[in-house]
């Protein structure tokens, strides 16, 4: 317990990593609720891997001597974020376009993209032996080593994402739930969908750079799954999912710190404990099936 109290003090050595994990835990599920409701959970698996491939590609360019930026560590990171965002954004638009056409097997496309992204990540690493160690660290997510400036930049961006999701909740809900109704009301459905995709791309790209693909996927999917059966409206769904993600991050960080375990898997495990408790409570209260999941 004393370790937990010490962890919460401002002079805690890893306070930025702790706060960063908790902010990720609060914000990622706010985006994840749309993955779940739009039945795009598999996007949550594939996109972090695509983002990781983008990071690996940026480092490959550096390794090949194509220094697009000056080569300092900060510039390398910015290039990695840009490549990650580019890869993720292009994949989202590609998947969304095919989804709108409604032809072919959606799961097959996403599975293929996931396999391609994973293979590309490994190949980009293999072709860039010089930066391998640094890159593998980034791919795993280096939240523990996050710098002061990166931490503040992350707070700004995730603050903006949370604010946008709150401000435009009705628009995102309307185009997700009933696109035809949105168009009939004169709303520009495509614009709102693109904004939602931009938010998804930003969250995934920055999240992967900060905590790695595993934790991003965990935060996008598991807390919303745990919250859905208890939600009565979009606001309560978003808040419950966000709370579940934030508390999972805090609990995961504590266990990781106290038991000297790797942070990412412990956080995901903590979120899964919430999911198991949610299912158990549903079973005990006889609410199974209320979430409407098919």
């Amino acid at each position: 317990m004393s370790q937990f109290v010490a962890m919460l003090k401002p002079d805690f050595l890893l306070h930025q990593a702790l706060y960063g994990s908790v902010v990720m835990g609060f914000v990622c599920p706010l985006v994840g609720v749309y993955f779940l409701l739009r039945r795009l959970v598999f996007w949550g698996v594939a996109l972090p891997q695509v983002s990781a491939a983008g990071i690996a590609f940026a480092f490959l360019l550096q390794g090949l001597g194509l220094n697009l930026l000056s080569g300092s560590e900060a510039h390398e990171k910015h290039l990695a974020i840009a490549a990650s965002l580019l890869f993720t954004g292009a994949s989202i638009l590609f998947l969304a376009f095919l989804e709108r056409r409604g032809k072919g097997v959606s799961e097959g496309r996403i599975g293929s993209l996931y396999a391609l992204a994973w293979a590309a990540s490994i190949l980009f690493v293999a072709w860039n032996a010089a930066g391998e160690t640094e890159m593998l660290g980034l791919l795993k997510g280096e939240i523990v080593a996050i710098s002061e400036s990166d931490f503040h930049a992350m707070l700004d961006v995730f603050g903006l994402i949370a604010a946008a999701l709150f401000l435009f909740q009705r628009e995102f809900l309307l185009v997700s739930y009933d696109r035809d109704m949105a168009l009939t009301l004169g709303r520009k459905a495509l614009v709102w969908e693109l904004l939602l995709y931009l938010i998804v791309g930003l969250t995934v790209s920055l999240g992967v750079m900060t905590v790695g693909p595993l934790v991003v996927f965990g935060f996008l999917v598991v807390p919303p799954m745990a919250a859905l059966p208890w939600a009565r409206g979009m606001t309560s769904f978003s808040l419950l999912a966000s709370l579940c993600g934030g508390v999972s991050a805090l609990a995961g960080f504590y266990v990781s710190y106290a038991r000297d375990l790797p942070l990412g898997p412990v956080i995901v495990f903590a979120a899964c404990v919430f999911l198991a408790l949610s299912w158990l409570a549903q079973a005990m209260l006889g609410l199974t099936g209320r979430s409407g999941a098919r």
Binding site: R39, E171, L173, R232, M234
Partner: peptide
Amino acid sequence: LDPIYPLTAYDVTAMGTWRR
């Protein structure tokens, strides 16, 4: 309309007013 959405009848009706 997908039943996965956790909406009340009021929430669904209110969508009609979301013109702008």
